[in-house]
Nucleic acid binder design. Structure first.
Lengths: 121, 121
DNA sequence: TAGTTGATCAAGCGATTGGTTGAATAATGG
DNA sequence: CCATTATTCAACCAATCGCTTGATCAACTA
């Protein structure tokens, strides 16, 4: 998978998580697979709408589907979720490491000027 | 913060991350604060557009802003990023725990029927 | 004070989103 | 075969998104 494709997959994955209905669906799926009808039950929207939500989740790689007669059970793909936390953590950790360096610098300095120059790093 | 407000903040945060330009801005900010003009430089879009992107990130709680003459430096808020990884990890871990239980069950069983009934849990 | 720089506001535009209703497809079971 | 069940397709709609251009606001500086 090239960088552009990975980027587009991140786009879709985060976009998928931006909707409360889809997050709720994922929460349900974390407890085991479910059909479209089952997933639609808690919501005041049509099964068609839920079917679309599932397609969004599937194209984001967050869920997969199997077959059971006329049913199409939906399964959570935890590996995709892990990819997302990895992406977030990457920048979070860089940022926090930077802060730790700044803190160390401030602790060993007297005035505030040192802090201002360190801020530009 | 009540549950609905937290939900809306999650909406906005994930939505904010769904755009490659905004993710790129966050990546830049993980290395230190920057002004709107500086953040706009790598992109082929107007500073107005970047300004809007920053407003999206700010309303999602992912960045904060300070003042320096006519400049408005943008700072990463790593705490908000941590909230997101926590949300994702919650469901990911529930799901993986469930799988571990299923694996254990399968390891101690003979046929596939036990798996089918465990699947419903 | 006038000009310049940095950023935002405002209005508009094409594309996309989340939802609907209605019809079609697929697989089961009497 | 026929009716039922589970799901998807198709067309449409209001709202929102990302971006643009043009104007405005705020603060520094010659």
């Amino acid at each position: 998978m090239d960088a552009a494709a990975a980027d587009e997959r991140l786009d879709r994955a985060f976009m998928a998580l931006a909707d409360p209905v889809r997050r709720s669906i994922l929460a349900r799926l974390s407890r085991g697979p479910a059909t479209v009808t089952e997933l639609a039950e808690p919501f005041d929207i049509t099964t068609q709408a839920v079917s679309k939500h599932i397609q969004v989740l599937e194209s984001a790689g967050l869920v997969t589907r199997s077959r059971d007669a006329q049913r199409r059970p939906v399964h959570l793909d935890a590996a995709a979720l892990e990819t997302l936390t990895e992406w977030i953590d990457r920048y979070r950790l860089i940022h926090e490491q930077r802060f730790r360096r700044l803190d160390a610098l401030l602790a060993s300095a007297d005035g505030g000027d040192a802090a201002a120059s360190a801020e530009q790093d």
